[in-house]
Design a protein around this nucleic acid. Structure first.
Length: 580
RNA sequence: CGGGGUGUAGCGCAGUCUGGUAGCGCAUCGGCUUUGGGAGCCGAGGGCCGGAGGUUCAAAUCCUCUCACCCCGACCA
């Protein structure tokens, strides 16, 4: 392909609105352009990358025995009403009507459609297990789209759905997808980690997320270098850390004035005690219940754990006004002693003695509170987010570390949630009707493009892994008007294309500096400079993007040299990722 | 959804407070020079100032409404 006749609108200046490097570089390198909030056009170069990811996903899904289909993006409301999600899904679901006033949505996911397909077409246990997948545009009306393609509203996703007759078979399907995902992300040249994830409202089942490790990631994942345990922050547990007493000697409980102190930090500073010796109270509400949760002063509440502990779908933190209303005490002075609301305490507090807490009176706190003596023991549960350094819950030896990650894949055992609601049955070997159980498996195809750039760039631009690069080689013509140069470049291009190596030739009549800068920005793995001083000596100049060395190769050896270099670069071994 | 901000040439911005009919840089087009890391000089083209309504002799500028986009927050008492 020729640069001069392709739409590759590179930008010299950095777009101000882009806050993460992948977004900036995708705009600057001319991969995408924004049309609306969270909605983007893929330009020729960006689309090529997207297609590379798709191709890898397709190959590995096919190899894993999944069958590709393509379902409609627009779905009738009836199906969603049948599964109950028309009510539950909320404003993220883009809804609209056709001319006849019938309700539709733009599919954010396809459980309903695929389940409907299966109930119509599959009759027998002989048809199972089955796994259908598609690569398709989805729309989720995100609260706040951001980071370019990373959290867009419209995005390209691979979603797969497996149907099995029993749990053992589902296990095999699930495992097959997990293995396929490791191969997919590995082939994409990504540094990633598979982590245990919370299963949310569906409960009970098994779930893993695949995260690309990157500073700009929106998710936090905890992992243990010792035994390989890894989980996202919502799910991650840790060994209950040993209690830390605030004072050497625990005296009798007493009340002190803490005028105007509202935050844990203020109270700690005022009283001169450590956050780890304090108990904070948070009011949560969920499904009509209100509760006062107790956490150690330095810990953060994990709402997912709280919901799980209460056995409800979700809980919300009450806002300060509501919290004061429910507890009868202004926020900042709440405590467990004499609390009006039922209590639930984080397990970390169990061994704590002589702690500080709000006195349930405005501007007053209690010192040296002791469980059992001053305050009856509440029920205990794991309620806090793990912090770096907490001991691994599995091996109980190594400390956990926290990293940021970009979620690019999610695998999930759904059970019979949809098949039951939508009345799917197949006959088993004994002629009985059975409800199949499902798994679902997503990959953010477009998000992978952004994630790959987050992991692979330098100050000058993108540094594509070969597997995702829009072209393997850029031929940079120093002077497109020089016939000898053009001849050499075209011979090179032809030789490479014959063996399937894709080439972008920068044939623009631009100043050399412009072409060099753009080459760095686009980040194709190999750059070949043809012309100028090297060609005078009968050579072309080959440079690997991201590496400083430039190599002069005799013109006649150019094609074979490059073929060898490209083939030697095949793939990145990322299979060192931890087994499940 | 709450708060803040921005819409003026393809892109980035100034002009708005204090009303008088639009400007700068980059890009584009032409010419000359230059040619191994985003060139220099000369010249040219390009904008119903997001939209609608209003005030005024006169509106990018003031008023009202509206649309779009961006940023921060929406979990720590």
């Amino acid at each position: 392909m020729r640069f001069g006749t392709t739409l590759i609108p590179t930008l010299k200046e950095t777009p101000v609105e882009a806050r993460v490097e992948s977004h900036r570089l995708m705009l600057r390198a001319g991969l995408i352009r924004q049309l609306g909030a969270g909605i983007y056009t893929w330009l020729p170069l960006g689309l090529r990358v997207l297609r590379k990811v798709e191709a890898i996903v397709r190959e590995e899904m096919d190899a894993a025995g999944a069958q590709e289909i393509l379902m409609p993006a627009v779905q009738p409301a009836e199906l969603w009403q049948e599964s109950g999600r028309w009510q539950k899904y909320g404003p993220e679901l883009l809804r609209f009507q056709d001319r006849g006033g019938r309700d539709f949505c733009f599919g954010p996911t396809h459980e309903e459609v695929v389940t409907d397909l299966v109930r119509r077409e599959l009759r027998s246990y002989r048809d199972l297990p089955a796994n259908f997948y598609q690569i398709q545009t989805k729309f989720r009306d995100e609260i706040r789209p951001r980071f370019g393609i990373m959290r867009g509203r419209e995005f390209l996703m691979k979603d797969a759905y497996s149907f099995d007759l029993d749990e053992a078979s589902l296990d095999r399907s699930y495992r097959g997808m997990v293995d396929a995902y490791h191969r997919i992300f590995g082939r994409c040249g990504l540094r990633f980690r598979a982590v245990e994830a919370d299963t949310g409202a569906i409960g009970g089942a098994f779930s893993h997320e695949f995260h690309v490790l990157a500073e700009s990631g929106e998710d936090v994942i905890a992992s243990c270098d010792g035994c390989g345990y890894a989980a996202n922050l919502e799910k991650a547990e840790s060994v209950v850390s040993s209690a830390i007493a605030p004072h050497g000697q625990v005296g009798s409980m007493r009340q002190v004035d803490t005028p105007g102190m509202k935050t844990m930090e203020e109270v700690a500073a005022f009283l001169g005690c450590a956050l780890t010796g304090m108990v904070k109270s948070l009011v949560v509400e969920g499904e009509g219940r209100a509760l006062q949760l107790l956490l150690r002063g330095d810990h953060e509440l994990n709402l997912v754990k709280a919901a799980n502990a209460l056995g409800v779908g979700s809980v919300q933190l009450a806002d300060p006004v509501r919290a004061a209303e429910l507890s009868g005490v202004p926020v900042g002075s709440m405590g467990p002693v004499g609390a009006r609301l039922p209590l639930l305490a984080d397990r970390c507090l169990e061994g704590l003695s002589g702690w500080v807490a709000g006195a349930n009176a405005d501007g007053r706190h209690l010192l040296d509170v002791v469980w059992g003596r001053d305050c009856s023991k509440p029920p205990w549960a794991d309620l806090h987010n793990v912090v770096a350094g907490d001991l691994c819950p599995r091996c109980q030896v190594s400390p956990l570390r926290l990293d940021r990650g970009i979620e690019v894949g999610h695998v999930f055992k759904l059970g019979d949630k949809y098949t039951r609601a939508m009345k799917v049955t197949v006959q088993d070997a004994d002629g009985r009707e059975k409800i199949p159980i499902m798994g679902c498996y997503g990959i953010g195809v477009s998000r992978i493009v952004a994630a790959a750039i987050e992991q692979n760039h330098d100050d000058n631009g993108i540094v594509w892994p070969l597997a995702l690069a829009p072209f393997a080689v850029e031929i940079l013509l120093v002077n497109p008007k020089d016939e000898e140069s053009v001849g050499v470049a075209e011979t090179l291009e032809k030789g490479l294309r014959q063996v399937g190596i894709e080439v972008l030739m920068d044939d623009r009549d631009e100043r050399l500096g412009v072409k060099f800068k753009d080459a760095d920005l686009l980040g194709l793995p190999f750059r070949v400079v043809v012309g100028g001083r090297s060609l005078k000596e009968g050579a072309v100049e080959v440079q690997r993007r991201g590496q400083p060395e430039k190599e002069r190769i005799a013109v006649e050896n150019g094609v074979t040299h490059l073929i060898a270099r490209v083939r030697a670069t095949d793939g990145v071994d990322n299979f060192k990722n931890l087994p499940l």
